[in-house]
Amino acid sequence: MTPRPSDDRDAPAGQGTAFDHVARRPGGWTIPVLVIAWSVMVAAGLGIVWRYEHTAGPLHVAPDRWPSDSQIERSPERWTLVLFAHPKCPCTRATLGELARIMTQCADRVQASALFVKPPACALEPGWEYSQLWQAAEQIPDLSVYADPGGVEANRFAAVISGLVLLYDPAGRLRFRGGITASRGHSGDNLGRSTIVQLLNQGSGDVDSTKVYGCELGTNLQETHQSCHQP
């Protein structure tokens, strides 16, 4: 016969660990208190994480018409999509995944470009912008990948958050601005992607802007004169 595992609830005091000593107190309140305290801490932690993930960055007003001085190639026959990305933003990997889905569905109707912004503070760091995200972007079919040294184009389009997507129609009018992830770095179905696909396929969308989740690009709009090295 297999012996029954011991239950030391009734073991004499003065033996065992501190947990045993406290847990033997009358009333059996130790475990409920532990569970409540643990629940509070877990809830607080999850709340912080959720809040962080769902806190969007500032969304500035982008030019309604395609800027004539922009160096980005635009097609008069197709829609033009521009993505502004921070080369090292981990959240933008999800944005590239969503963009890949868009290009898979609508590559023939859109001319897409991805601009990796190189902050002015990193101007003297050659190749700083050629990150894993750059390589991932180059893997997306029909997506043109450019560097944006000093964030010139980003400033032109009022982009301050990595992951901002602008969609101009063939006439050069701004039809959509915002992010294409549901939260920070979160892949999956989202309103931005579905709206862009809707615009490209049907010419109209439910919304014209969504929230943008990502790292700050460090453009002139929010220039930081810090070193580009990690602390």
């Binding site: 959240c91 990595s162 790292c215 460090g218 602390p231």
Partner: peptide
């Protein structure tokens, strides 16, 4: 996601 960025920092 080891680090989060704000421009160059």
């Amino acid at each position: 996601s080891p680090r989060t960025w704000s421009g160059a920092i």
